[in-house]
Design a protein around this nucleic acid. Structure first.
Length: 189
DNA sequence: GGATCGATCTACT
DNA sequence: GTAGATCGATCCC
């Protein structure tokens, strides 16, 4: 076992399989009273070299290096100079596939998340907001799941029937790929 | 060394 | 629903 804090098999398979599987899973940061847990409701798959929209499409750089690491590596980058965005590397070493965590519901430590966000609404319904609510920043990039960020599948739906597939957001390339996955219960019709 | 772009967020209409 | 903000990293000369 290499990543004891990650449920076995959770990160196996294609990047789209994993993205779908991560919906409903919970991401956690902090410990004890300062722990914040978010249940994922929105993710996107990025298939490195085969995906024009991926940061790894043009090759390896200092920023995206963690995507070339082992499955379960956390890749955090700064978007638009102000927002942190968090990914989980999927494929084996050398293959830069990753899943972008776009949003979710805070299920623990809501007061902490609210304080960090400075608002009581829109706490974690976007990539940058999700990271801010969890207290994730660039120092988390390159670390493995289980070290500073925990991942559990406790509240994952038993089937994939409630999962919707839609085009990805915020990109200008390969927008035709339906690689954004959302929990149907959160999509409000 | 300089110019350009970005997997976004917030506020206002 | 629409427009503006904001700063690092990347890419090119």
């Amino acid at each position: 076992m290499t990543t004891p804090s990650v449920p076995s098999g959770l990160l196996d398979g294609s990047v789209t399989d994993v993205a779908r599987r991560l919906l409903g899973c919970s991401v956690a940061t902090g410990e004890g009273d300062s722990e914040v847990v978010v249940r994922l409701t929105e993710v996107e798959a990025y298939d490195g070299p085969n995906d024009p929209a991926s940061h790894a499409y043009r090759g390896r750089t200092k920023r995206n290096a963690p995507m070339y690491g082992a499955a379960g590596t956390v890749y955090v980058y700064l978007s638009y100079g102000i927002h942190w965005c968090m990914n989980i590397t999927v494929a084996p070493v050398g293959t830069p596939s990753a899943v972008l965590l776009r949003g979710g519901d805070v299920v623990k430590g809501l007061d902490i998340a609210v304080e960090r966000r400075g608002r009581t609404d829109h706490i974690s319904d976007g990539p940058g907001k999700l990271c801010q609510a969890l207290g994730v920043d660039g120092s988390f990039s390159g670390s493995a799941l289980g070290e500073r960020i925990g991942l559990t599948d406790a509240d994952r739906p038993p089937n994939q029937a409630q999962i919707l597939r839609t085009p990805r957001i915020g990109i200008s390339q390969a927008t035709n790929r339906m690689w954004r996955f959302v929990l149907a219960s959160e999509a409000s019709a």
